[in-house]
């Protein structure tokens, strides 16, 4: 029996099997005489196993293509644009992050930022549904000025948004599904402008469609669903743009509207 006092570190090292055999035996003796400490150690061992049980399955998940491809040096000019340095990429992303924070903290904050120029085409850090959900919660409750250009000036809206996004962009017609176009606006995305179209039904429930041309390098995806508080978001990428439909409506209804939106963009 050693006279070395048992320390907290010893107990953790015991849990983590990091002790030399001799010391390990001493700790076992100690635990046999101290049931409270033994219970604590057992709880720590159980914790460790639980963490492994919960998170180890991630190891077996198929790797997303964007991560798999990063096992090799990234091709800086894959899209044919000037991607001269990651440094500029990172500083751009910092600006983008700042814009998102400003957006989340309110319209006033957003106004203070000038949307910066799209000089880099890399897909940036904010996941599409998150950007869309933030944009939805910022603008859809706004009773007086929910959009920049009202549906009455749809011609202007189409021309403006198309010009700034650099692709023809008509807001889909959702009236047959019960949603009238309220209007639209431009927003800062991760590296350039994105569009938000707002719709509302006859009870005033609002849906926003967020269209981001920043997903040109991502291949087509299926519909995916995300949730942020009371806002449900259905999103997908069609090879040209990323789309996200947000609203405080049920998933099924969102899926029904999304299918209509998808079809309209597909048949352009």
């Amino acid at each position: 029996m050693s006279l070395n006092p048992v320390s907290e570190t010893d107990l953790h090292a015991y849990v983590d099997s990091a002790l030399p055999e001799a010391r390990r035996t001493e700790i076992e003796d100690y635990l046999n005489q101290h049931p409270d400490e033994a219970a604590r150690v057992r709880a720590y061992v159980a914790q460790k196993k639980a963490l492994q049980a919960v998170f180890n399955p991630v190891l077996d998940e198929p790797l997303p293509e964007n991560l798999r491809s990063l096992a090799s040096p990234p091709k800086m000019t894959a899209t044919g644009r000037s991607g001269n340095a990651f440094l500029s990429h990172y500083s751009l992303r910092r600006i983008a992050a700042g814009v998102v924070i400003a957006l989340a903290s309110g319209y006033a904050g957003w106004l203070a930022h000038t949307p910066h120029q799209p000089t880099e085409s890399r897909i940036a850090m904010r996941p599409l549904p998150q950007q869309a959900a933030v944009a939805h919660v910022v603008f859809s409750p706004d009773a007086r000025r929910p959009v920049e250009v009202l549906a009455e000036q749809e011609g202007q809206l189409v021309a403006w948004v198309s010009k700034r996004l650099g692709i023809p962009m008509h807001p889909p017609k959702l009236a047959p599904l019960g949603y009238e176009l309220v209007g639209g606006r431009l927003l800062p995305g991760n590296s350039g402008p994105v569009a938000q179209f707002m719709y509302q039904d006859n009870t005033g429930r609002r849906l926003t469609l967020y269209v981001s041309p920043e997903y040109t390098t991502t291949k087509e995806t299926a519909f995916r669903f995300a949730q942020e508080g009371s806002v449900n978001v259905l999103y997908w990428v069609d090879g040209q743009c990323g789309y996200a439909l947000s609203g405080s409506i049920e998933k099924d209804e969102l899926a029904r509207v999304s299918t209509a939106v998808y079809k309209q963009f597909e048949h352009k």
């Binding site: 924070i101 996941p127 669903f225």
Partner: peptide
Amino acid sequence: RRPTLSTLSTYSINEIENEIPTR
């Protein structure tokens, strides 16, 4: 150091998509 919407949870709709979350 910066605030995020860290609680956004994302998962797929099974009836639309075949991919099944493994966790």
